[in-house]
């Protein structure tokens, strides 16, 4: 049976995640209202502006519902803005967050847009071939608790992690043709 995966579609690059998931054989729900969360087996929080998505998550308590689902072990994957929203601590910011991962995130940590870059990352969990990763005004994690597994670093900065049912990347796997990161997330749904 096809997996039903939600993609949070309030703002940002949700269409690209949808396309990758459909290519991998999923039944995709674009999540705009709280009721759209019913019946999904996993959720992707896309890249976009974390402050914008945070504001829109407060409408009809959608963020609270996502928190409950995350606490009940539903797999959630956040990319870039999604990584920021999943973190418990955001450096120098009191913006809205889902408060699920034991991570300390720094926004725009590599600099403004003129410093945005793409690079090859070594991700042992995905095999020996390097992963092309696109970083756009990207965050990184300054600290993680011992229960958070580090999947990849770039120049000593933590950019890809897993904590149980939660996955977060500072880069955008939806913008490159390599589907291994999404496949890894779908395997998390299978394990669940």
């Amino acid at each position: 049976m096809k997996k039903r995966v939600g993609v949070l579609a309030l703002q940002g690059a949700f269409r690209e995640h949808r396309q990758v998931l459909e290519k991998l054989g999923c039944d995709v729900t674009e999540v705009r209202r709280t009721s759209d969360l019913d019946g999904i087996q996993g959720l992707i929080i896309p890249g976009g502006e974390s402050t914008t998505i945070g504001k829109l998550l407060r409408i009809d308590e959608m963020g609270e519902r996502i928190k409950e689902l995350g606490a009940k072990d539903m797999p959630i994957f956040g990319t870039c803005a999604g990584m920021i929203l999943l973190s418990k601590t955001i450096v120098d910011s009191d913006q809205y967050r889902l408060n699920l991962m034991d991570t300390v995130v720094e926004r725009n940590a590599f600099g403004r847009q003129v410093a945005s870059f793409e690079t090859d990352l070594q991700v042992p969990a995905l095999g020996v071939n390097p992963l092309r990763a696109v970083f756009i005004r990207a965050p990184y994690l300054k600290e993680v608790a011992p229960n958070v597994g580090i999947l990849a670093e770039y120049n000593g900065k933590i950019v890809f992690v897993r904590q149980g049912n939660l996955l977060a990347s500072a880069f955008h796997p939806e913008l490159t043709p390599d589907n291994r990161v999404h496949q890894y997330f779908l395997n998390m749904i299978d394990e669940h």
Binding site: G12, F14, E16, G48, A81, F117, T119, I136, L175
Partner: peptide
Amino acid sequence: MTDIGSFKVKTGLAEMLKGGV
């Protein structure tokens, strides 16, 4: 190889602005 300011990175920021104001 690291590439700063590639066309992918330039269009990528616009992708992140989608659905926004």
